[in-house]
Amino acid sequence: MTRFFMAVGRHRRLIVALALAVAVVFVMAHFWVPTLAQRAFPTLAVLVLGTLALATVVLALPRPRAFEVRSQVPAFSTPSSPAAVFLMLAMLIMAMELTGTVIRDLDTTETFVDRLLPLGAVVLTVQLAVGVWRGQGIELRPDGLRDREWAGTLIVPWDALPVVPLPRPTDPRGTLPVGYARPELVRRHGLVTSRRRLYTDNIDQRFVARVIRYYTTHPEHRSAIGTRVEYDRLLSAISDPPSGPPDQDL
């Protein structure tokens, strides 16, 4: 099961592309078969429940204590979250059903207000799909760290001297508080939720906090970030080897 979840996260863009293509075909088919959404409702309901169940299973698992080594960037990146992929698929299926119903009822007296729910579902689906496609989470580079959100990136140079607490091992929160000795160096690109919290839904908080604290106080090792040799040395230095799946050299 763990390998399945890893594959889902690794191939998230392919899954998004295929799912959107199927959704477009399904919606367009309603112009020829107006009752398609009604006929397919039981199957779509099972698919929604199935994807939500998979997302729940992923969220219940311990977060991995490992980075992906992306030598071509170079960077250490948090693994892609399969839970985000499953949530996007569930929302996409619901948006398909609701949009198909709107097409079926185009010739009725249905008001614009009645169509707000399908419109909201489509907007939320697009947001989730963009987030899955971009990838979300923390990325460490030789020049600093980046926190990727669905529509923007928080860029924190190492010279800003980010300060993060060391969370308790059982801390369930999905964000990590962060402060800066030089906040004027912190930049935003696009829409960013907060400059004071880092997204950690897809990695162990205590592990990533140790890594950030290490590179903040050991500038001599920053230039090697993104290499396999440096990653192995880092794990040895912080004495906190990864307990999650082995990282993937992308």
Rank of each mutant, 00 (worst) to 15 (best):
A23R: 01
D147N: 12
R3M: 12
H221S: 10
H30Q: 13
G174N: 13
L191T: 13
V22R: 06
A19Q: 03
R210C: 04
A90P: 07
H189C: 07
P167G: 01
P74N: 03
G131F: 07
E220T: 02
D147Q: 13
V33E: 08
D105P: 02
P241H: 04
Q127L: 02
V25H: 14
P34G: 09
V163C: 02
P241D: 14
N202E: 11
A151M: 09
P167N: 08
M94V: 09
P172L: 10
G179I: 02
L106P: 08
M1C: 14
V229D: 04
W133Q: 07
E110I: 06
I225C: 09
G100F: 13
P64S: 02
I203V: 15
L145I: 12
A121I: 05
L234Q: 03
R233I: 01
M96T: 00
F76K: 07
I225T: 06
V8N: 09
S194G: 03
P165N: 14
F207E: 13
P241F: 06
F41I: 01
T109I: 07
T227Q: 02
R228S: 12
A84S: 03
S194R: 01
E184M: 05
A151C: 04
P82N: 00
L61I: 02
V192H: 10
V229N: 01
L117F: 06
G50R: 07
R206W: 01
F5Y: 14
T217Q: 13
E184V: 04
M88P: 01
P162E: 00
V211A: 08
E139R: 15
P64N: 13
T175I: 05
T153N: 12
L54K: 15
L140P: 14
T101Q: 08
Q248T: 09
Q205D: 07
Y180F: 14
S71H: 07
R134G: 10
L154Q: 04
P142L: 13
L87P: 04
L198F: 14
E110N: 09
L98K: 15
A21T: 09
T43R: 04
H11A: 01
V46S: 06
